[in-house]
Simulated assay, not measured.
Amino acid sequence: MANTKWVVDPTHSEVQFKVKHLMITTVTGYFSSFNVEAETEGEDFSKASNIVFTADVDSISTNNEQRDTHLKSPDFFDAENHKQVRFVANKYEKVSDEEAKLHGDLTIRGTTKPVTVNVEFGGIVVDPYGQTKAGFTVDGKINRKDFGLTWSAATEAGNVVVSDDIKLHAEIQLVKQG
């Protein structure tokens, strides 16, 4: 069976991360420029291969320009020298018809580590324009310090300003090609 190519539908997808600030509230950030590509046998995502996600670090937004500038600086993502965050999957592990674990290598700031994210498969539908689309919700968690994002500060009382754990969340809609 021939491989089927899928590409992201950016107008119906979003990629976000959440981090605790002062350990009492959560700040949400987004990547507004990202790409996802995948190949499947037919429309069977349990046999997916060549799943690649990239996000442009310069597109990071937390709805605060000063904070965004800091995140792009060498203290965090070092956008000038490391333009993209990249995840290359190496195994789609089907847990049930709706759930899977996606294993792969995440590269941030030149450091690559194995990461596993949880995937909820929303299904495949044909939209009103005749395009076949597949939907996914992706959730995971990483430790930012594993990827060289080590900037830290503490309040006078000793509270941590930024947590080490970063929650990842994405709503991804893929469009079947050709």
Score class of each variant (00 low, 15 high):
residue 49 S to R: 04
residue 39 E to G: 01
residue 52 V to C: 05
residue 62 T to D: 14
residue 17 F to I: 02
residue 65 E to P: 03
residue 43 E to S: 08
residue 67 R to A: 12
residue 26 T to I: 08
residue 53 F to Y: 08
residue 56 D to N: 11
residue 34 F to S: 00
residue 61 S to T: 11
residue 62 T to M: 11
residue 36 V to L: 02
residue 30 Y to M: 05
residue 38 A to D: 03
residue 22 L to M: 13
residue 31 F to D: 06
residue 61 S to V: 09
residue 32 S to H: 11
residue 22 L to I: 14
residue 16 Q to A: 06
residue 63 N to K: 13
residue 56 D to M: 11
residue 63 N to M: 08
residue 58 D to S: 13
residue 64 N to C: 06
residue 22 L to H: 12
residue 15 V to Q: 03
residue 48 A to F: 00
residue 21 H to E: 10
residue 20 K to V: 12
residue 19 V to K: 05
residue 55 A to G: 10
residue 48 A to E: 02
residue 59 S to Y: 13
residue 49 S to M: 00
residue 49 S to T: 05
residue 16 Q to H: 08
residue 37 E to L: 00
residue 65 E to D: 13
residue 26 T to D: 07
residue 35 N to S: 09
residue 62 T to H: 08
residue 30 Y to A: 10
residue 69 T to Y: 07
residue 44 D to Q: 02
residue 41 E to L: 02
residue 25 T to S: 14
residue 69 T to F: 10
residue 19 V to Q: 06
residue 39 E to C: 01
residue 51 I to K: 01
residue 20 K to P: 10
residue 58 D to R: 09
residue 28 T to D: 05
residue 34 F to K: 02
residue 36 V to R: 01
residue 58 D to N: 15
residue 39 E to S: 00
residue 39 E to M: 01
residue 59 S to I: 09
residue 68 D to W: 12
residue 53 F to G: 13
residue 35 N to W: 06
residue 24 I to Q: 15
residue 22 L to K: 14
residue 47 K to V: 01
residue 57 V to C: 07
residue 29 G to C: 04
residue 26 T to C: 06
residue 34 F to E: 07
residue 31 F to S: 06
residue 28 T to H: 05
residue 63 N to H: 13
residue 33 S to D: 09
residue 64 N to V: 07
residue 53 F to V: 15
residue 32 S to Q: 10
residue 62 T to L: 09
residue 15 V to K: 03
residue 40 T to I: 00
residue 61 S to G: 07
residue 62 T to R: 09
residue 64 N to I: 05
residue 57 V to W: 09
residue 54 T to Q: 11
residue 37 E to P: 00
residue 16 Q to T: 08
residue 39 E to P: 00
residue 55 A to I: 09
residue 28 T to Q: 02
residue 24 I to M: 15
residue 66 Q to M: 15
residue 15 V to H: 04
residue 59 S to Q: 08
residue 28 T to E: 05
residue 21 H to R: 12
residue 25 T to C: 05
residue 64 N to T: 11
residue 27 V to P: 09
residue 53 F to C: 13
residue 63 N to W: 14
residue 45 F to L: 02
residue 35 N to C: 03
residue 34 F to Q: 01
residue 21 H to G: 12
residue 42 G to W: 02
residue 58 D to C: 08
residue 69 T to I: 10
residue 18 K to L: 13
residue 62 T to N: 08
residue 17 F to D: 04
residue 46 S to G: 04
residue 58 D to Y: 13
residue 50 N to L: 01
residue 54 T to G: 00
residue 22 L to P: 12
residue 17 F to M: 03
residue 29 G to Y: 04
residue 41 E to D: 03
residue 20 K to Y: 14
residue 60 I to L: 15
residue 66 Q to D: 14
residue 51 I to V: 14
residue 35 N to Y: 04
residue 45 F to E: 00
residue 60 I to T: 10
residue 34 F to V: 02
residue 16 Q to V: 07
residue 27 V to C: 07
residue 19 V to M: 10
residue 17 F to T: 03
residue 46 S to T: 03
residue 17 F to W: 03
residue 16 Q to W: 06
residue 28 T to L: 06
residue 69 T to A: 11
residue 44 D to R: 01
residue 25 T to M: 06
residue 19 V to N: 09
residue 25 T to I: 15
residue 44 D to M: 02
residue 55 A to S: 10
residue 36 V to K: 00
